[in-house]
Amino acid sequence: MAPSSPEGVADLGVAAGTDPAGAPVLHPRPAELLEVAEALRDAGYIQCLDVCAVDYLGADSRTDLPDEVVPERFEVVVTLISHQRRDRVRLRVQVPEGDPRLPTLFDLFPGTENPEREVFDMFGIGFDDHPDMTRILMPEDWEGHPLRKDYAVGIVPVRFKAAGDPR
């Protein structure tokens, strides 16, 4: 167990490390996420600042993961803050490409509603039991998830439905 790991989760046996700024980073497995988040909340990490995701498709080296963590294509990153301890902790959860879903943090931190919808919209990672798992930024009939690495930049032509065929 890394010494930087916040107390309260030391007994959960989650892989831990630090980032270049020295902030603690935990690597729970998807099934452990809720348990770890709840333990952290009870240990003083009372606010969930952010949920976002990263698509590591094509990234050849993942040097910053501890040995026991199996890298997957997607990673969901949850940032929690403790005002009392004045530090942030980051949870990095590996999400497999074949079954991109996680349990929602909404019941622990209702403020994850919008960020989780954004992750779903942009990466197609679903959150089980989220109250409104719909697209948030893209139009609801949009196909594809724009922030995936296999989604190209700027190839969709703008169409004006009302305008007829120019010829």
């Binding site: 003083g44 009392q84 019941d107 622990l108």
Partner: peptide, 13 residues
């Protein structure tokens, strides 16, 4: 910066 108890479920849905 006292930590008031957060009871997530109270505010949920």
């Amino acid at each position: 910066a006292e930590a008031p108890p957060v009871q997530g479920r109270v505010y949920a849905r």
